[in-house]
Design a protein around this nucleic acid. Sequence first.
DNA 1: CTAACATGGTTGACAGCTCAAGTATAGACG
DNA 2: CGTCTATACTTGAGCTGTCAACCATGTTAG
Lengths: 132, 132
Amino acid sequence: MTRELSARLEGAHGLTLNDYDVLVQLYYAPERSLRRVDLARTVLLTASGITRLLDGLERAGWVEKRSCATDARVTYAHLTDAGTAKFETAQAGHLADVEELFGSRFTPEEREQLAELLGRLPLAETSEACSA
Amino acid sequence: MTRELSARLEGAHGLTLNDYDVLVQLYYAPERSLRRVDLARTVLLTASGITRLLDGLERAGWVEKRSCATDARVTYAHLTDAGTAKFETAQAGHLADVEELFGSRFTPEEREQLAELLGRLPLAETSEACSA
DNA sequence: CTAACATGGTTGACAGCTCAAGTATAGACG
DNA sequence: CGTCTATACTTGAGCTGTCAACCATGTTAG
C-alpha cells in the first residue's frame, strides 16, 4: 500500500510519500513553520533524514529555512507560497487515492477503531516551541 | 516501532526485521522451502529485493538454493539446519520484544480486531506450488 | 566564569530497497 | 516446428534513509 500510494504521488506530482507528509505538517502548522527536530519526530524520520528530505524541497523552492530569534541552534522549515500551492494541488489527488485504496474497505466506525488502536503505539513525544 | 524492533533484532542476532521475516516464512513452510517469488510476495519485497536479501542469508549459511525438478526457471530457498537453529534462537527474543512493545498495549480482543481490520488491506495474491 | 552536559543540526559512509533491463525457461498457438 | 508472450530470477544504477561523528549553541552547577 505504501509503495502504491508513493508511486501514484510520485507519478502525479513528483513527490515522495514522505515529502507529502512533511508538506502536510507544515501546511497545518502555525505560520506554516516547524522546527526540523519536531518535523523529524512527527514524520518518523531521523534528524539527518529530515535534513536530506528538506534539501530536496528547498531546491524545488517549496520550503525555506528560517532561523529562530531566541535560540541560534534551531532552524525552522517554512512552507513558501509555491510550496503551499504545490501541496494544495497534490492533496486532492492523494486524498482520493487514500480513499480508494484504504477508506473504501472500512466503515466510519471501523476507521475510528483503527485510529484509536493504532494511536496507542509508542512514539517519541513532541517538544517545546519557540517564538520565531 | 519497526526501527526499534529491527534494531533489537540486529543487536541481538545480527538479523534485519526482513531477514527474520523470511526465516519465519521458511521455517513454517512445507519442507522449509519456498519459491523466491512467493517469498517476495509474502514479505512484501520485490523480486530483486529477495535476491539480495537471500544473498546475505546464503552467505551466512542459513539458507540454500534448490532447483525445481519440473520447472527450470524456479529456484527454491531452503532453510538449512543452521538456519533453523538460528531462527529458533532468534524467535524467543523477538516474540518477547513484540509482546513488550506491541502486545502489552492491547487486550486479546483488541488484537483480534486489529488483525481482522488490517487483514482487509490489499495485498498481491499468492501463486501455485511445484513439487520439488 | 567555567566545565560538563544536553540539544539542534549537518555531513560522510554505507545499507537496503527499487526500477529498468537483461537472461533463461515455459507454455500457447499458428 | 517456430514464434510470441509470460514468468522466474539476476544485475547495474540510483535513491532514500540510517548511523556515527562532528560542530555550534544553550543550560546547569560548582
